[in-house]
Simulated scan of single mutants.
Amino acid sequence: MLFSTMAPKSQTTVPVAEPTPEVVAQLLDVVADHSVEGALSDIEQMVARLRAGAEEAADARKVLSNTPATVLREALRLRAARVEAV
């Protein structure tokens, strides 16, 4: 397996079977860069889900604020029964 160094001034290919400290340092940089990118992507996806959930919750609050008390009480009773069934 060969590794192309990522040094900005040179593009050389080094056999990984004989890694030098410089090659290992560059490999560590590559791994770290990809780990950060993956983590950032995961965070961005999580934030998007949270925003969508917050919008959905806001819409639900609007509906609930206009729902008659008798319907809310019955809904709470039904919800409690579902929770107990699990």
Rank of each mutant, 00 (worst) to 15 (best):
A52V: 07
L76K: 12
V16I: 15
S41I: 07
T5A: 00
D29W: 04
A52D: 14
E84T: 05
V24C: 03
S4M: 08
A80T: 10
I43Q: 07
D33E: 11
A75W: 04
L2W: 15
E84F: 03
S35E: 15
L64M: 15
A58L: 10
R49A: 14
A75S: 12
V23H: 00
R77M: 05
K9A: 11
V36A: 03
E84S: 03
A75E: 09
T70K: 06
V63R: 05
V47Y: 04
R77N: 08
S35P: 02
S10Q: 09
K9M: 10
E37Y: 01
L28V: 11
K9T: 14
T70G: 01
V23K: 00
R79D: 12
V83Y: 02
L64H: 11
P68I: 01
E18F: 07
A58R: 11
L40S: 12
E55H: 12
T67R: 05
R49P: 03
A54F: 09
Q26R: 04
T12D: 05
A85E: 13
T70Y: 06
R82S: 07
A39G: 04
H34E: 14
S41H: 14
L64E: 15
E18Q: 13
P68T: 02
R51Q: 15
R82V: 08
S41T: 15
A52Y: 05
A85W: 02
A81E: 15
T12R: 06
A17K: 05
S10G: 03
R79V: 05
A25F: 03
A32E: 11
P15S: 03
A58E: 14
G38E: 11
S4H: 06
D42C: 07
A58H: 09
S4P: 02
L76Y: 10
N66Y: 02
A48M: 10
S4Y: 04
K9E: 12
E37V: 09
T13Q: 12
L40V: 14
V14S: 00
P68G: 01
V83C: 01
L40I: 11
D42Q: 11
E84H: 05
A48K: 15
A69W: 06
M1I: 09
A60W: 04
T12Y: 02
T12N: 04
L76I: 09
E74P: 02
A85N: 06
T13N: 08
A7T: 13
E18I: 08
V14K: 00
V83F: 02
L28H: 09
K9G: 04
T5R: 03
Q26M: 06
P19V: 02
K62W: 04
